[in-house]
Nucleic acid binder design. Structure first.
Lengths: 236, 236, 236, 236
DNA sequence: AATGAATGAGCGTTCATTCAT
DNA sequence: GATGAATGAACGCTCATTCAT
């Protein structure tokens, strides 16, 4: 794909520079990058707060101190803007997951961290919930188009697998752990608490956002899953 | 009047059929209850498919073979209609939960059923996911107004507790089970699989809707949670 | 029409019961008069408060503790209902004018009363202003259809003329008084103060509804017009 | 491009005419000021013809050869548009009043002009009547919000006062003239004739719009009020 | 690239009115 | 005659999007 090569070259050429050189075909001139990013940032906030349908182009452009028409100039449509926001959110969470500082010599401690990570991440970035929720409402039509989607989860799975392997080698973890199921359980237990905090708070008549309750949940789910991969049951 | 006789005959002839005889003016319920329910049913479908903001009053009224204005006649506003739909969905799921046929003498089997229930229910009624998702997007502003919200979950918790108690009495369950945490884990593991099936399918490059995978998940989560309350680890 | 005959029989059978027998031409049964008048009264109030376009059929029917459809049953349309309200208002004001207790022997006092009457009447019944205003907004399309319109003002003009004549005979009034112009001036000076009380209060920065100001205006306009027909100027 | 040349010719040919040359895309102002004024002008016309409630946004936007949405773009709401129309009307009438060419040396002639002015103005601009009528129907809720309302009438009152003062100095006017009452009488007698021309024509069975009758009224009211401030009664 | 006016479809809602029992 | 459900046009307003400078 020609166009892509050019893009790539341009990107490579710009390494080390603050701002890439402008070109005839408006390959984004000087301030463009800033404007684009302002819009993207504003869009992420507005989409997260209101959902796709509830978000207003005007709100986004004003939040970015820019103009409606620039959104179309840079992104083409509301939907395409949303896709970029979505992909940014994906990238962020998976990157954060890969950068977890894990104790190489203590698989149990490392696994506990891995388990708690999604919960703590969603807790800190509840906006992502809305973006993912919107995407699922629309049957994942954007993510399914993306050819790189399955590359996001892979690294995390690899890390999880390597921690499990270390535990097995050390004789503390069972040999038959299904990493994919485990990964999914980890995500479920972290995601749901945040995504349904409002309805569940009402149903259970409990404030799920109370710090102690949050810590209790983090401990509960990590113990639950840790136990499930341990060779021997912890005495409690 | 001839026409009327014919109509009458047609009506008599059509007893037991879905659609009554056509008339010049399209047959209308002329019955508040029927019309209300038609609208409610149509609304549930449309809200579930499109979300609150994406749902169009016109779509709902047409799906109900009714009129926009009747929605306002019966429900007052789009939001109030949504609230009724939402409460109907709550009632349905909690009612279904209470009617689970549980083996009184086998707490482990009973608990497995309880654990799998939300997952299977959401799998069968994925529309509820959208309704709950919308509600959480709007920070639960409707459910928090409802005075009866916390009465929905209570019965389910009671049932869960009684099953746990029986298991404890039989000596198969641990004494320190936290039913609320357990209930939340049950719901999380059932809900997330369905709610995020589209994005997760893409991330994991797996078809989460494949029957075998569904069964595997049901088995995985029930075993996981069952194990977590068992006194002794199952040998594997 | 067969069906109707059957209905009729049923009705005939019920004679002597709570519900009176209907007639072929519905010559309004017992309660009809009350309902009609309730509606009329409610309509006058609502039309007066909101204007024609601002008035809602539903508001009227509810204020009359009746039903929208009964308005159509009794009056045919919103417009026809308005016309009846309008004509009632005309009748009222002209009747009140004719029943003024005038001192037969004191033309000056009598004239002063006549002059002040419209002002005081509109002050007491500002709703009439709105009805007349609406009618004029619509270029008097209802009143112009009414064949009896010119019979409303006539009696008042006659009374005015007779008072003037008495004053002329007594030698206190000028002989060249134009009763029509005078009548129009009387009405103008009484009507405007009430009709434009809100805007004029704002323009003049005065509260036109203050009792003293009202009395001052009544005195001012009566003196003004009385003087204009007097043979000799009053010393002031 | 041929078409364009032709267009140009057409434009040149049409100089001085109402409509500029047509183009493929209908010629649009693309100038906020022009569009705003077009809308304002159209709104004034439609509001005047139909009243506030009777006026339709669509009618206004079409009359302005514009779009509904531009009304909201420029004015925010129907009500705010109405307020601007209203204030424009106020400004116009009070400006016209201030620009009356009055004979400085003939207070009586000057006063006669002042008296006749509102009548003649309303006669020429009956739309203002509807605007003021609407405002009064709504209890002056717009004008009362305007902080500048009382500055409209003030100049006119000042002019009136100065003319009266000159007359007093010349010895032709009485010293105890109440300018506010007089101003109100002037306005009443001018306004009512126009505002109630339709109903009064019907009541009196006279055509109030007949030129002679109009002149007669102008003469009648100016004589009436002039006489009321004169020191000595005119001989008739 | 930035600025802001123009475009037009469509949305939630209201309302006068009619129909059926 | 009373009751209330049904009908359908239209209204004020919003929004994503495009165009012109």
């Amino acid at each position: 794909m020609k166009a892509k090569d050019i893009d790539l070259n341009a990107v490579v050429a710009s390494i080390g520079k603050e701002e890439p050189a402008p070109r005839k075909r408006p390959f984004k001139a000087r301030c463009a990058k800033t404007t684009r990013q302002n819009i993207l940032k504003a869009a992420r906030e507005v989409f997260s707060r209101k959902g796709y349908e509830g978000a207003r182009i005007e709100k986004i452009s004003k939040a970015a101190k820019s103009y409606d028409s620039l959104i179309y100039y840079y992104f083409g449509s509301k939907e395409k803007l949303f896709v970029e926001v979505l992909e940014g959110a994906y990238r962020d969470i998976f990157e954060a997951g890969q950068n977890l500082p894990l104790d190489e010599n203590d698989p149990e401690a490392a696994l506990r961290q891995i388990i708690e990570f999604p919960f703590r991440y969603y807790m800190a970035h509840p906006e992502v919930i809305v973006l993912l929720g919107t995407e699922n409402l629309h049957a994942g039509k954007h993510i399914s188009k993306s050819s790189t989607a399955d590359q996001y989860a892979l690294p995390m799975l690899t890390i999880l697998q390597s921690v499990i392997d270390k535990g097995i080698k050390k004789g503390v973890f069972r040999k038959d752990v299904d990493c994919e199921q485990l990964y999914m359980a980890i995500t479920s237990l972290g995601y749901f608490y945040v995504s349904n905090r409002h309805t569940f708070s009402a149903f259970m008549n409990r404030d799920l956002l109370h710090p102690e309750r949050i810590e209790a949940w983090a401990h509960y789910i990590s113990t639950l899953l840790l136990d499930s991969v341990r060779k021997h049951k912890t005495t409690t």
